[in-house]
Simulated scan of single mutants.
Amino acid sequence: MADDNMRAGPGDVKEKKGIQSVEVGVRVIDALAGAPHQLPLREIGRLAGISASQAHRYLTSFQKSGVVVQDVATGHYGLGTRVLRWGVAAMSQTDLFTLSSEALDRICEQFDMTGLLCVWGEYGPTCVRLKRSTFLTGTDLGLGSVFPLIASASGLVFLAHLPRAITEPLIKTERERARKRGEPPVDMAMIRQRCETIRREGYSLGLGHFVSNISAMAAPILDYQGNVSAVITLIFRDDPGVSDPPDRAARIAVLLKETQGVSRSVGWQPPPEAGEPAEKAAPRRAARRAAVN
């Protein structure tokens, strides 16, 4: 028995060293995955936090297994076809609806708010899941509810991310209905400006525009191409006379954290920050992934 324990000790040490090696290898792959193009050896080592000679050993093994390819002319390295197959397999095994629903539940339970999960349907943004708070919000919104594009927080998020070819017919219909109701014409220049703000800030805030006295904040779940897959929307009623409730910033922060977390799970990566070269975005993205995980 004692001999077995003694033999197990060295094995445990070797296993730990093996795990550390895998973690370093993942950093090498992350460096390549976060770059917009193939990278030279020294740059890969710098991004992975190891020496160029260490990076070379990892890259040599990765090349043999098809994880990495090397350009013959430049000597630079990029991801290989095996990683592409891994990515496709990972996406096929990822249940976006479940991940989004779990994120919705966490937000609503943290703030005791009513929340919706919306997807793009035949008639526009459509609620496919509802999480109610412990108190009534005084609205008949529910499963199957369809939201307007230009008068709801959910709709504006879709409008900000979908191609015009998809949204233009619905916008035309909404503007015509508004005209028949005698409402003032919609300022499309202002709507486009709001969409730019939504893309930049990552969320939309609607204060009593769609349903009187009911406000909403919404944020997108984006796929690996940056296309909107779904939208999480929180609905609430602010206290009268309070233009900027103290907990609104906290709600927005959690909403963004959860929706961006789901987006990363399906392959989305945040774009470079304003004025930041794409090459410098790679370590920042890696740090954000580590923080989320």
Rank of each mutant, 00 (worst) to 15 (best):
E183W: 05
G226E: 06
I191T: 08
N213C: 07
Q193Y: 09
K172R: 14
E183V: 05
I221P: 06
I232A: 01
R237K: 10
T173N: 12
G182W: 00
N227T: 11
R194P: 06
K172M: 13
I191W: 01
I235H: 02
Q225A: 13
S215H: 00
R237H: 01
A189S: 13
C195L: 05
G202M: 04
P220E: 00
I232Q: 02
D239V: 14
D187K: 02
I214H: 01
L222E: 01
T233M: 02
F210V: 05
M190A: 15
V186E: 05
F210C: 08
M190L: 15
T197L: 11
S212D: 12
E174W: 08
I232T: 06
D187R: 01
Y224C: 10
I232D: 04
D187E: 06
C195M: 11
D223N: 09
F210N: 09
G202E: 08
Y224T: 11
E201Q: 14
G206C: 09
K180W: 12
S229P: 02
D187S: 05
I232H: 06
I235N: 00
A219P: 03
S204Y: 05
L234V: 09
E201C: 10
K172A: 15
L222F: 01
G202F: 07
S215P: 03
R181S: 13
G206F: 02
T173I: 15
L234I: 09
R237P: 03
M190V: 14
S204I: 12
R177F: 12
A189N: 13
V186L: 06
V211R: 12
L234T: 04
I221E: 00
H209E: 15
L207W: 00
P185V: 09
E176C: 12
G202N: 08
L205F: 11
M190D: 15
L222V: 04
M217A: 08
T197V: 14
I198V: 13
E174H: 06
T233Y: 02
H209R: 11
R179L: 11
F236T: 00
K180C: 12
P185E: 08
G226H: 05
K172S: 14
A216R: 05
R192D: 14
G206H: 03
K180L: 15
G208E: 13
G182F: 03
T173W: 12
G202T: 07
A218S: 11
E196A: 14
I221C: 07
I198H: 00
T197I: 13
R192P: 04
V186M: 07
V231S: 03
S215E: 01
S229A: 12
S215D: 04
M217T: 09
R200G: 08
Y203K: 05
A189E: 15
R175E: 15
